[in-house]
């Protein structure tokens, strides 16, 4: 996520991350970010900036500063141990041909 370390003068609008549900039944997906004075403003701007071509049916905005991200330097510690848990995947198991699809 975006991180801004500059000293803001205090009157710069904070950064919001924008998530759009493109169609009923789909997840909200991160589409980008924008600056807005507050959450109401952010929603209204997100509608103008990110759904000019009917790209969405629902919008979430989240202050970028509220997002906690996993530490990049722990990427391998976090996620590599998952790689050897092959028993979680259906292909790990043999199903007799006679049984067909399971």
């Amino acid at each position: 996520m975006s991180q801004v370390h500059d000293q803001n003068s205090g009157n710069d609008w904070p950064l919001f991350e924008v998530f759009v549900r493109s169609k009923q039944g789909l997840d909200h997906k991160h589409v980008g970010s924008l600056h807005a004075a507050d959450d109401t403003h952010a929603i209204s701007l997100a509608r103008d900036v990110y759904t000019r071509r009917q790209e969405g049916v629902s919008i979430w905005v989240v202050p970028a500063a509220s997002i906690t991200a996993s530490a990049p330097e722990q990427k391998s510690d976090n996620f590599d141990p998952m790689a050897n848990k092959i028993y979680r995947h259906p292909t790990f198991y043999d199903i007799p041909d006679e049984i067909g699809h399971m």
């Binding site: 996520m1 801004v4 370390h5 803001n8 924008l34």
Partner: peptide
């Protein structure tokens, strides 16, 4: 601008 901001600069600057 938003893409640039992910690199740690503010739009203001």
């Amino acid at each position: 601008y938003a893409a640039a901001e992910t690199l740690g600069v503010s739009r203001q600057s």
